[in-house]
Design a protein around this nucleic acid. Structure first.
Length: 551
RNA sequence: GGUUUGGUAGUUCAAAUUGGUUUAGAAUACGUGCCUGUCACGCACGAGGUUACGGGUUCAAAUCCCGUCCAAACCGCCA
């Protein structure tokens, strides 16, 4: 027997037990007549006490010991097993280790070669290991949620057909006929729609997807997606499921019971935040010059004025210090602070503003609660004001007060197409239904029945109500400029399928790694993948891609 | 595909102002020894470098130039 207990479970209750433990040597503290060894396994660290050590033990040796659990003279409160130690009387080396090329305990900056090359060693790192545990738990929660809601998990093929639409495909040569290829799927899109046509009412799948594009901090060439699709639903039905799902996760993970998920149109979002993935944990935006003549005094016409809404979870004293110190470096800049109270008592800085309604309006529309604050940042219109705003923005984003705040948004009513280089492209994908099921002549003004889920500025997933009508699908392909030949070769099977009584259906794909990033306020997708690829889409550990060795 | 930055002990990083005798350092890891209570143990000593590789310029190259390889960030791309 290799062990009676693991290295993370022994405590004061186990005193006088004779135990056997196996694990890696985490650290050695050697003295003349006494030696301490920290032994580590998946579950934790236990201190061993060895009166006289005879064997040569080095770091990362795998050892097995037998001994008695005793109370420590001086406890270490930093670890779970800190009250006890094991008085060793048998020690066996199970496997030796050479000097290791990375420092397991260290937190490295991103993407060091050795972290990827010796990824199996860095998996022994406490944080990385914990991240993988988190991911496993979340996958479990996801499955629970969908099973509870009567979805069934169905696998779709990974060897599929290459299409000219969308991201580049990874291709796989076909052995039986030269010049023919499979492609790895970018998503199970058409397959899940075919499942709906096949009468599978509610489907979900946790599935690998592949996109041959360059990576970013939140992007890998192969990634895991939560994919789901349902029949006989409309947009609102799906929003309800998304809301229920996010609430479920936040409750199970962070014990957050009340959360307000906003549903906003694309038009509104873009107009207001100039981005389709805003982070609403605080709001900072420039007040458009067109309002100036009504609301701003003429002395300030040449200034840039930003409004900054700070919800009550910020510590205003900290923010004050930073924002004001930064802004007032240049004496011409100015900061004005309003809360709910002094805006209704009509406090007005007459030097700057003409009209209190301006301020009241912002407060009415933008405040989450009456404890929020509205700051006006009145900036000299020199070249540095953008840098300053950026700095403040970054400062707020890094703030510890944001750590447990989640503001999910569902954005809907995207454009159906985007026009680029003389061609129309699908904004979402070519199977998306138009917003009210009808096309109009002005293609630029057609909206889509599609939606994105954003949490704290991270795009978690997107989906749509799909086209369930043969003619509509054909029209969309035509607008996209797909030739008859391409339609026939790439999508014939799909078009055909729409002729057989297709149910109304829709769904969504959610990037699981990004979901985790947003739920844990993390930035780097690699931290949640056991064996990630580097910036050239290479695996430095197994050295892939590689030439094929012919035997 | 484009732009930019970088490659120095096993590892993480410095310095070496414009080429000039620098001992190319530190921390950590490693080795040897000392230490009865450590827990990031401590202390002493030691070993460790063809400055990524190849070529060029020069009396002289870590430093300047060219090429190759490797790495990082951003843009493009991600229907």
């Amino acid at each position: 027997m290799y062990r009676t207990h693991n290295c993370g479970e022994l405590n004061i209750k186990h005193c006088n037990y004779i135990v056997t433990l196996s694990g890696w040597v985490d650290s050695i503290r050697l003295m003349k007549n006494i030696t301490f060894i920290d032994i580590r396994d998946f579950y934790g660290i236990t201190q061993l006490l060895i009166p006289s050590i005879k064997k040569k033990i080095k770091k990362e040796y795998l050892i097995q010991i037998k001994g008695k659990v005793v109370k420590r003279k001086s406890p270490n409160y930093n670890i779970n097993t800190g009250n006890i130690e094991v008085y060793v009387n048998k020690l066996k080396i199970l496997n030796k280790s050479i000097k290791i090329p990375i420092d397991i305990k260290k937190e490295y900056s991103r993407n060091k070669v050795n972290l990827l090359k010796y990824r199996y060693l860095y998996l022994r790192n406490f944080n990385l290991k914990n991240n993988l545990i988190i991911k496993s738990k979340i996958l479990n929660l996801i499955r629970n949620f969908f099973i509870k809601n009567n979805f069934i998990e169905i696998e779709t093929p990974l060897l599929v057909k290459s299409t000219s639409e969308g991201a580049r495909n990874f291709i796989v040569p076909y052995r039986k006929k030269k010049g023919y290829y499979y492609s790895l799927p970018q998503s199970p899109q058409t397959f899940k729609q075919l499942l709906m046509i096949g009468g599978i009412d509610k489907y979900y799948q946790i599935v690998k997807c592949f996109r041959d594009e360059d990576i970013r901090k939140d992007r890998q060439p192969e990634f895991t997606q939560l994919d789901f699709e349902l029949s006989f639903i409309n947009r609102k039905n799906i929003f309800n499921i998304i809301i229920k799902f996010i609430k479920y996760l936040l409750y199970k993970i962070h014990n957050i019971k009340f959360i307000n998920i906003k549903i906003l149109s694309y038009k509104y979002i873009i107009k207001k935040y100039y981005t389709d993935k805003p982070d609403l944990r605080f709001k900072i935006y420039e007040i458009s010059k067109k309002y100036f003549k009504y609301y701003i005094n003429s002395n300030y016409l040449n200034y840039k004025i930003y409004s900054l809404i700070l919800p009550n979870y910020f510590n205003i004293i900290d923010i004050n210090k930073y924002v004001i110190i930064n802004l007032l470096k240049d004496q011409n800049n100015k900061v004005l602070i309003y809360n709910y109270k002094n805006s209704i008592t009509n406090r007005l800085d007459k030097k700057v503003f003409k009209n209190i309604n301006f301020i009241k309006n912002i407060i009415k529309k933008e405040f989450f609660s009456k404890k929020d604050l509205l700051l006006f940042l009145i900036l000299n219109d020199n070249k540095n004001y953008k840098k300053l705003i950026n700095k403040i923005n970054n400062f707020l984003l890094r703030s510890k007060y944001l750590n447990n705040i989640y503001i999910p948004i569902i954005i809907y009513k995207f454009p159906l197409f985007k026009y680029r280089k003389g061609k129309f492209y699908s904004y979402h994908h070519p199977f998306t239904n138009p917003y009210n099921g009808k096309l109009i002549n002005n293609i630029n003004k057609i909206f889509a029945d599609s939606y994105d889920l954003i949490i704290n500025g991270i795009e978690i997933g997107s989906g749509s109500i799909r086209i369930d009508n043969y003619n509509m699908q054909k029209k969309i392909f035509n607008i996209l400029g797909l030739s008859k030949n391409i339609i026939k070769k790439e999508f014939n099977y799909f078009l055909e399928s729409l002729k057989f009584g297709t149910p109304p259906h829709g769904g969504m794909g959610i990037g699981i790694d990004r979901l985790i990033l947003s739920l844990f306020n993390k930035k780097d997708i690699m931290d949640f993948i056991a064996f990630p690829k580097n910036y050239l889409n290479k695996d430095l550990m197994i050295k892939a891609p590689s030439k094929i060795i012919k035997i």
